[in-house]
Every structure is written in C-alpha cells, then in structure tokens.
C-alpha cells in the first residue's frame, strides 16, 4: 500500500513538473533559449494567489485567474525587455541574461515579501479521498494536480496542432527566417509562447504551493530546475515529452525520497539529468538534430 501511495504522490508531483516543463519546452522549441527565469515566474504566481486570497479575501479560483493574468503580463514584459534585444546574440549571453532575470525576480520578491516563509493554504476545496478502509489516502490537491495537468496537455496539443497560432509556432520552431518570409510574425509568436508558458507557470505555482505549503522567494528555483530536467528527459521541444518526463521525474523523486535517502533526493534527480544528457541527449521523445558543418 505504501508503494501505491508513493506512486500516486509521485504522479501528482510529476504533473506539476510537467506543467512547468511545458513552459520550458515551448520556449526552447520556439525561441531556442533556456528561460532560466521560468521557475521564478512560478514563485510570483504563487505569491499573487496568496496575496489575493489573504489580503483581498478573494475566492481561491479567482485568485488563480488573477495569478495567471499577472504572470502572463510578467512573461511578456520579461520577453520584451530582456530577451527580445538579444535575438541575434550568442546563446551564452541569452542564458546569462535569463539568470539575471531570475535573480532579479527572486530579490525583488525578497524585498517585497521578505524572506519569511508564508504558509500557503490549499486552493483545492475537496477533502481527501480514503480508499481501502483508509489505508490509502489521496489528498484533493493530488487529484486536482493530475486532472489539471491532463487537461492542459490536451488543450496545448490541440492549440499547437489544430489552430492557426499553433501552426505559426511550429513554423517558427522549424525555421525562423523561412517563417518570417511566409508572413508569420516571429516576434508575436514568441511573445504568445511566453504568455502561454507564464500563465501555465502561475497554475503550477498555485498547485505546487497547495501541495507543499511553504512559500518563499526561492520557492520556484528548485522546481524550475527540476522541471527543466523533466523537459530534457522527455525531449526538449516536445509537448508529450514534457508530460512524460515530468511524470517520470516526479515518480523518481518520490521513490528516491522514500526508498533511498531524503537528503539525497535532489542529487538523485540531478544524477538522472546528467545520465540522460550523456546517454540520450535528445531525450525520450525528442527529435534528433543533425549539426551540419
């Protein structure tokens, strides 16, 4: 029964990673950049929801919407101010800028909300589910996380494959210049991608803090890096890959915590990242890209 319970919490944690990983994978697929600040957008989303419920006394669902709107705007602003001028710059410069943005968000949060951890109350109104005479308890947050993740993946898959903006996204990720020549507005497509990724980050932030109710300015950093690991695991640039990678990574982390060592669980996740990048750098579902001389 322990095994089943670990498995379910692994899948739940993995769903949250998957939602974050989607933001990484879409931005990487389209703009070819590692948005290091994505994890901190999660933190901002969680703080927004927290402020909306505690300060303004809003309904939890409304607070989630509020967080999504703020993060969407934040995502677009970051993209316009920091990343857009660097479209032609070397990837090292973009990465350092992204680290700068991440650092900026963390320290701005530190000034605004102080380093004291806030205890986040779950936005999920359901009670825990008790199965097998109470031997297996599944919390409402767990169920909602998995459910939300599945919906988001299905919705995104539809957007990318069926709509016009999705077609533009695929075109830009295939060949930026050719897409531009065909009349696709590359800048607008990248902005929309950032907007979608950041809105998802807000959802992930709220879910993450509902499951692990400690909110600090550094809350988003570690899950952000782990979700990046998940995106690479599944094959960066691939939406189903982000889902698969996220779930597997969540399960690995929870099992590592339960059966190997609590303190080493982060180390285990990172060891997985390193092994994957060495053995199969394209990830589980990624496409192989040939480098031409």
């Amino acid at each position: 029964m322990d095994f089943l319970s670990y498995l379910i919490s692994g899948i739940s944690l993995g769903s949250i990673y998957a939602i974050i990983a989607l933001g990484y994978t879409m931005v990487y697929g389209i703009a070819r950049m590692l948005n290091f600040a994505h994890g901190d957008v999660i933190m901002v989303g969680a703080y927004m929801s927290f402020m909306a419920t505690t300060r303004f006394g809003w309904h939890p669902l409304l607070s989630v919407l509020f967080a999504m709107v703020v993060c969407t705007v934040l995502g677009i602003v970051i993209e316009q101010l920091a990343y857009k001028p660097l479209r032609a710059a070397p990837s090292l410069a973009v990465l350092i800028t992204a680290i700068g943005v991440s650092y900026f968000l963390q320290n701005a949060a530190l000034l605004l909300w102080s380093a004291n951890p806030k205890s986040f109350s779950s936005v999920v109104p359901f009670d825990s589910l008790r199965l097998f005479n109470g031997r297996l308890i599944i919390s409402g947050t767990t169920i909602v996380s998995i459910f939300v993740c599945v919906i988001i993946i299905l919705a995104l898959n539809t957007i990318v494959n069926k709509t016009k903006i999705g077609k533009a996204m695929r075109a830009v990720s295939e060949d930026k210049d050719a897409a531009q020549l065909m009349g696709v507005s590359v800048n607008r497509t990248i902005s929309i991608t950032f907007a979608i990724g950041s809105a998802l980050a807000a959802v992930a932030g709220v879910l993450l803090c509902s499951a692990y109710p400690i909110l600090m300015p550094t809350t988003g950093a570690m899950p952000g890096i782990k979700a990046f690991t998940a995106a690479v695991f599944g094959g960066i640039g691939s939406i189903p890959g982000a889902f698969l990678g996220g779930i597997l990574l969540g399960i690995i982390e929870i099992f590592g915590k339960a059966y190997i060592s609590t303190q080493l669980s982060d180390a285990i996740v990172f060891a997985v990242l390193i092994i994957i990048l060495i053995v199969k750098p394209t990830g589980l579902l990624g496409k192989k890209v040939l480098v031409k001389v």
Binding site: A82, P85, L86, A88, A89, P90, A93, I96, T97, I99, G100, V101, Y103, F104, Q106, N107, A108, L110, L111
Partner: peptide, 18 residues
C-alpha cells in the same frame, strides 16, 4: 542583490546591442 541582477542584465543588453 537586486542591483547585481539589474547590472547583469544591463551589461548583457549593452554588450550585445547592434
């Protein structure tokens, strides 16, 4: 720390400004 972050971004933007 906030200043560091701003400086880091600004240096990168200025250095890569065409």
């Amino acid at each position: 720390m906030l200043t560091y972050a701003v400086i880091l971004i600004a240096v990168m933007l200025v250095r890569n400004n065409a």
